[in-house]
Design a protein around this nucleic acid. Sequence first.
DNA 1: GATACTGTTGGCCA
DNA 2: CTGGCCAACAGTAT
Length: 303
Amino acid sequence: MFDVRRQGSPRIESGAGYTSRGGWMPELPEVEIMCRNLARWSLGRPLCQVDVVDSAVDSGGVEEWARKARGRTVGRVWRRGKYAVVELADAEHSLVLHFRMTGKLVAADPERRSSVRIILRLAPEAGRPDCLVFDDARRLGNAWALATAELQDWFETSRKLGPEPWPVHRPAAFWASQLGSIRSPIKVALMRQDRVAGLGNIAASEILWRAGVSPTRQACSLSLEQWDRLAAAVPAFITDTIEREGGDEIAYVNSRGASSHGNPSPFSVYRCDGQPCPRCRAPIERFKQSGRSTFWCAACQEG
DNA sequence: GATACTGTTGGCCA
DNA sequence: CTGGCCAACAGTAT
Ligand SMILES: [Zn+2]
């Protein structure tokens, strides 16, 4: 009945993660793309210098890590929830980044950017950028330097992150198990990082629209069929978003602040209030849940 | 000029 | 335990 793929004529082309006003939200798919880009740019290369331009970004150990990182080689780069991890192949500590709302990791000349917080300077190499910048307009992002061996425990215990929703396949039983005892609305439950890590406000509305589930339903009231549709909608949203946004678009094009003014929205429902539902043409509605905007189609998301 | 709003996390409070 | 509100911050809309 409900196809988790987008239906109707697409509103897009610029990709999810971008608000209708051109702002950029680093949720799970965007952090995944940034990690892939960072790995592509820096894996196996020595760092010749790390500049902590804004010391307020340092939530623990980063300035010391930056001094010791000189000459060390970039190792694995990976994502956990909305966090990015940059390992060093020949040092015990990793750099951990959280982008909050406006943080991004880009290949750019730091002199030409206005909200630089950390600069990773790599030993020059033909074909790969020498300068990677943690750029963060609202300066709410965080960085830590932590022992690589203890990271999994840090994410679980200190950050209280639940399991990953992706890329491992999560069946209906997983969602029922993680969220099925929560009395909050399913939309609020989806954003609980301690139950499932990585889904944010945009993803929650988009996923529920794909699943055909009302955001107002109590999480503990969903039927098995609804958990099934949710289980299908989550990886569909994530992979669609990564595909749409992959490559260098995030890193190079939109990082320059390209305006989306006049462009169609990348979303099915997020910030599409008043526009016709891509599936049934009923107007998309907007309301607040726990202080956050929710967007949905009351006609085809069952309550 | 002032105020509201934006999304994420953590902290505080009832 | 729950759920709600606010701070942190900066830019944009009203
Ligand atoms: Zn609809």
